[in-house]
Structure formats: structure tokens, C-alpha cells
Amino acid sequence: MVQIGYTMMTEQAGPRDLVDHLVGAERAGFDFSVVSDHYFPWLDSQGHAPYAWSVLGAAAQATQRIPLMTFVTCPTFRYHPAVVAQKAATMQLLSGGRFRLGLGSGENLNEHVIGAGWPSAEVRLEMFEEAVGIIRSLLAGGTLSHHGAHFDVDDARLWDLPDEPPPLGIAASGPRSCEIAGRYGDLLVAVAPDGGLVTSFAANGGEGKPCVGQVALSYDTDRDAAVARAHDQFRWATGGWEVNAELPGPAGFAAATRHTRPEDLTDTIPCGDDVDAVVEAVRAYADAGFTEVALVQIGGDRQVPFLDWAASELLPALREL
């Protein structure tokens, strides 16, 4: 059975609301949760970008059972990998072992803020692999000194370590990132129902490990309102990650999608209250070999009705997958 998760989308709600929504998601019966870790929203209309790690700390105390996960954190620019390791260890302790650390090579949208530039994808993946190795070493315990091509660590040690380190999820979108995911990851993270990613992950060491995907939807009893909301807040998703990783801010995403029409989204984003449409979107991931799928309800002000609908209609239907 595919596990169904809930996404705390930090780009579309403030920190207190995000925690309240997660409490509702736990009550509704979601199997796990993920949170985006951004400094900017993709579009101005989304309107938010609180600090994900503070939200996670509050969420760990406000909930009882639902697992937590970053989806995903970039450990190479805004955060040094030694600090990411410390944050992950602390979250595993605060949550009572419910935390998974999702990691990815990042987006210019969020990482440009420190003024370090935005190198080529090849360099970013080199940095990412080195950073993941540092994080794994520190979470394993002991003292680490490291002097690599991109990072230095001087006599670092995590003083508060959980009995079991948080599993590492590695985001992948191509062969090189799948190789890194297979070598270092305890699970695969992806945002496209691509069976090739699952196969490549397995071939590089990920055989039998969880694979986590994500499906965006716009629930509303008024389908026209749902389509309009998806266009207003989520049309950035039509660009693909080769483009989206490079754009530096909401203005760039607005310009890149200025010709995107509302009807251009409805083939990939279920809109309205059609349970079957969401089931089919999740089924695409299940058929590709994914074991978990996190749902994103578009619109920070539409989480409560979505959660009611999910509890009464959507989750029972998805349990049949």
C-alpha cells in the first residue's frame, strides 16, 4: 500500500498556520508529512516563506505520531553541512525519532541570498555529494575534521545525538543525482513519477529502500475557483527543474510563466473535488515504483476544507492503491 503524506508548504502559509494544519493532517489520518525549506516563495501571490526548521520544532511538539521530513534542505549554501547535521540530530530528538532529513542540491531562488553566486549544475552536485558525506559522518558520532574541495570542518562533534540517526532522503532528477542517492541515501525523493529514477536509485544501492514522490492538487467544490487558484499560485511548476533551479526570484518565475494559461495546468494538477483524478495522479507514482506520495493542497487558506475532504473521501480511496 502506498503511504500518503501531507505537505506543509511554507510558501503559502505562515508558521502558526502551518503547525495548525499539520495537527489537522495528523487527525485526518495522513501517514507522514513533509515541509518545504525555502527563503522565497516561487510567486508573490503565495506570500510566505517562514523558517522551516522553527516550524518543524513546533510541529514536533504539537503532534504525536505523524513523521516529519524536510522536502528538501540544501546543505551547501544557506546552511553549512555541519550545521544541517546538528539541526537534523536535534529534530530527531525533539520528535522522538519521527524525523527524516530530505536533502537536495538546491535552487537559486533560495540560495542566492548569501551572495555566493550560483555555479553550474555539475559543481552544485559535487558540493552536494561532499556535504552529504559530512552530514552522514557527523550523525554517526565522533569528532570530524574535513578539508575538501568545497567545505572545511574543524574539530566538529554533535553533542546531542539520537540513538538512531535520522534517515537521509536524497532528491534526484537524473543519473548523477540518482548515483548520489543510491550511495548515500536511505530513501529517494523525486517530484516526477519517473520509473527510471527508481530503477537508477536501486541500481546504485537503493534496492528495496523507500521512494517518496509528491502530487500537487487544488481542491475546491467550485472547480473554476480551484483552477484559478492553481494558476495564480502554482503555474511555476510548469517550468521543469532544469529551469526552476536557475531562476533567482519570484519576478523571474512570473516572467517565465506569463503566457501560461489556466487550462495548461489541468492535465498535471487535479482541480476540483474529483477523487478519482487525485487517485490517478498518485497511481502514476505507484506504478513507477514509488512507495510514498506527499500531497500538496494549493492555497494556504484552503487547508481546512481540504483536510475534511481528505479524511472523509480522499484518503479512503487512496488506501485502495
Rank of each mutant, 00 (worst) to 15 (best):
P50S: 07
L187F: 10
D17R: 10
D287C: 00
G206K: 08
G97Q: 01
A225Q: 06
F71M: 12
H80M: 11
F40T: 04
M8D: 12
F151H: 14
E246T: 15
D160W: 10
T70F: 13
P166I: 03
I66G: 02
N108I: 08
G185V: 10
R124E: 06
G272I: 12
F32E: 01
I135R: 07
W236Q: 06
E292P: 00
A190G: 09
R229W: 09
F306H: 01
V2E: 02
L247M: 11
A181T: 07
M8R: 07
D301W: 12
A52W: 02
D308K: 15
G97V: 00
I114T: 14
L168K: 05
L247R: 12
A286F: 02
V132Y: 05
A216Y: 02
K209F: 11
L247A: 04
W53Y: 08
Y79A: 13
E242G: 15
Y285L: 06
P75F: 08
H38C: 11
L187G: 01
Y184L: 14
L144Y: 03
L139R: 15
A255G: 15
P41A: 10
R283V: 05
L18Y: 01
A116L: 06
L188Q: 04
G142V: 01
G29S: 14
R16S: 13
E179W: 10
A85G: 04
S120Q: 13
G102I: 08
G117D: 08
M1P: 08
A116D: 12
E107R: 15
Y51F: 11
A230R: 02
G117K: 08
R157Q: 02
E111L: 14
T63Y: 09
A49W: 05
Y6R: 01
P81E: 05
Q297N: 11
R258D: 15
A294N: 02
D264E: 06
N244I: 12
C211W: 04
A156C: 10
H259V: 13
T90N: 06
H80N: 11
P167L: 04
A294C: 06
P41R: 09
S200P: 07
G117A: 05
G117R: 07
G299E: 07
S145D: 01
G208A: 14
A82L: 03
G115V: 04
P193L: 02
G14S: 04
H147Q: 14
H48R: 04
A237H: 08
G249M: 06
R176D: 11
Q214I: 00
